[in-house]
Design a protein around this nucleic acid. Sequence first.
DNA 1: CAGATTGCCCTTTTT
DNA 2: GGGCAATCTG
Length: 868
Amino acid sequence: MSGYDDIPFFDDDDPALRKPPAPNHKTGSPAEGGIAARAMAARDQHRVPDYLSGLNPEQREAVETLDGPVLVLAGAGTGKTRVLTTRIAHILATGRAFPSQILAVTFTNKAAREMKERIGLLVGGAVEGMPWLGTFHSIGVKLLRRHAELAGLRSDFTILDTDDVVRLIKQIIQAEGLDDKRWPAKQFAGMIDGWKNKGLDPAQIPEGDARAFANGKGRELYTAYQNRLKTLNACDFGDLLLHPIRILRSHPDILREYHQKFRYILVDEYQDTNTAQYMWLRLLAQRSPSSRAGTADGEQVSGSWPGDVSPASAQAGAGRRDAAVSASQKPQINICCVGDDDQSIYGWRGAEVDNILRFEKDFPGAKVIKLERNYRSTAHILGAAGHLIAHNEDRLGKTLFTDRHDPEDGKVIVHAAWDSEEEARAIGEAIESLQRPDRDGKRHNLNDMAILVRASFQMREFEDRFVTLGLNYRVIGGPRFYERLEIRDAMAYFRLVCQPADDLAFERIVNTPKRGLGDTTIRNLHDYARARDIPMLAAAGDIIETDELKPKARKALFDVVADFKRWSALLENTPHTELAEKILDESGYTAMWQNDKSAEAPGRLDNLKELIRSMEQFESLRGFLEHVSLVMDAEQNEDLDAVSIMTLHSAKGLEFETVFLPGWEEGLFPHQRALDEGGRSGLEEERRLAYVGITRAKRNCHIWFVSNRRIHGLWQSTIPSRFLDELPEAHVEVAETEQSYGGYGGRGGYGQSRFDKQEPFQNAYSTPGWRRAQANKTDATRDNWGNRSGHAIERIGYGESGPRARTIEGELVAKSTTTEPSRFSVGDRVFHLKFGNGNISAIEGNKLTIDFDRAGQKRVLDGFVQPV
DNA sequence: CAGATTGCCCTTTTT
DNA sequence: GGGCAATCTG
């Protein structure tokens, strides 16, 4: 907890900042050949550290344009991180600012860590860290801890994770007397998150949103939630941004302090910022001369929020006051945002691509620098990706290029498979053969290969396959360490010791391990606490003095209260790892797992040990708790040579020699839901995802699609993704048929005519599946893309489960689909694309149970069989 | 209170 | 179909 106050604030009189301005190395040197020029060059050579020498002209411009707002549009593989870190190094090396005067924000801890490391390398470790380099959230916490009381919190507030939030909301919904089945807490948590992403207080949410939940009680519930957080002395992730925004808006003096402090602001992945983050940045970047001079005017300018979203007004104000302020104090918004609009793939969690598209308007006079020289991929890969992304309308427009033109480089290869099983098998074989040493004895490391999927359910098939092949793989982005049950339990103990008001932690562990404190006791206690408006642990302390509880429960609760009293007393003067172990032992938590004879118990004990071990590097229990709530990634075993399997989303920022992109089928990729809910912009985001996927590849990129995929347990026939048609012929080739097509149709030839004229995949489509898809194009029930399978997904999801229908229309749809007489009857003989011929043995709505001659009994949708 | 059963969801994920 | 969580039942 300590450490926040000892960061000094430097003012403009800092001697270090009065050094002569650094030479300005603009692109292009002074008149070539002249003596002066050569002398300058020599001097520069002498003065300019190595770190600038390896940069290309655009990168160098991005590094050296230190004054005024800068937007660096950095395409995939163009050296974005390098620019960012070199820019910081440059600021430091030229003495323009101290490390503590640079605010550098990233989205992930990983990115922040990487940046710190690389700056350390550049500056030679001379820099004592950068206190204000971190994620939006970690910097938010830092600000909030300093000024917590202004947000109605104590500085030791707890940060709740999503799970806690959902449990809390559930309690609130129940407390309001609402049915928590009809109004799921999880859904409401999502809504709150959405509002917070937009920077909205309960009072500011749109009326429609407020009505949409719990019979119009949305706003009340949101308010109740915020109040509850306050009494719990807790924050959710959104608050880590919103509280600081509120504080900075309503306390101009504090805002001024930060304006004076932060000379340079750098933002990574700007395309991923949401509205709240944008507001936060704008507040901090909005330096007005008066705020530096400390006049009352400054309060006016910075206090004019929220109406003042447009920086134009700040600029106008700046201009007006310029005369009154000495020239050396000319205001400067030294903000540098780095991002790539083509890689904006987080719209669904509140990111506003518009922030980056609007940058020049937001920051008049901004310098926009495009980095388009790619150092990662082959010309074919860039060509394919570039042609694909050009189909998007909402973009600033960049075209990546490379100097690398090796005739050996292969094109992007499109493969077809019969079903997902074959897809996994074929990719497995491809990986094995790549891994085998070639004639020269060289082999392709598994670490250099990745399978990037759209949705995580696709991973399973690959895992299964690789297990049978004995091929090493690692899944990136699975459940995390901190999310495990035992870790969360242990953390709840620690939290409660540090923060006795943490009712969520209390409720989690009062009866874990079992202490005979069942539902009745807890409810009792809960009501008691609520009635007196005190924390549950305190209530427990009180209630054991009364005779409200049965003796057995009373005794158990007495022990719990005594335990926590004892542990809390040890908090200040016991080494925290020791205390943590003590807590787990004395509470009986360790014993609980030792006595558990289930298969996973030993693993859980290991995890607990690991938890204690990872605590060692922290100063205190509190420090550790904060780390876990914000920095939640578990490290992977880097030593193992293994193929990576991950989603396209988690692949952003990574690169691999060889990339496999399976599942390019309509409905899956682009995902049907993105299409349904996001319309054109949803489609564009999917396309950017495809772009991200392709540009991960350095040398080889293999795209796959299948004709049949099992979705929600039902086999569905699928058609190739439209994105395949958007790839340029010049950079893509279609793989020769490697497989026989499951005994059906025989040829399955995806020949060279793939990109001929209007009808791509012509040969492939001479199958019944294709013919049916064609027929569906005239079907009134098809979706916009003639995608019957997508339509079917929707029916399974909503139509059939009548009770889930929430709207009148929904109910009508549900009724009409379930009561509609099937066009089949029991006993009919039908043909199915994958399973062949069979007889219908049962019909439920549009789901048929069919006894297939060869494949046995299966349940399939009626859309996928034809009468024979 | 534990084991059995039913119900529900099923895109992407950070902090 | 399958995984998980809430709910039921002995």
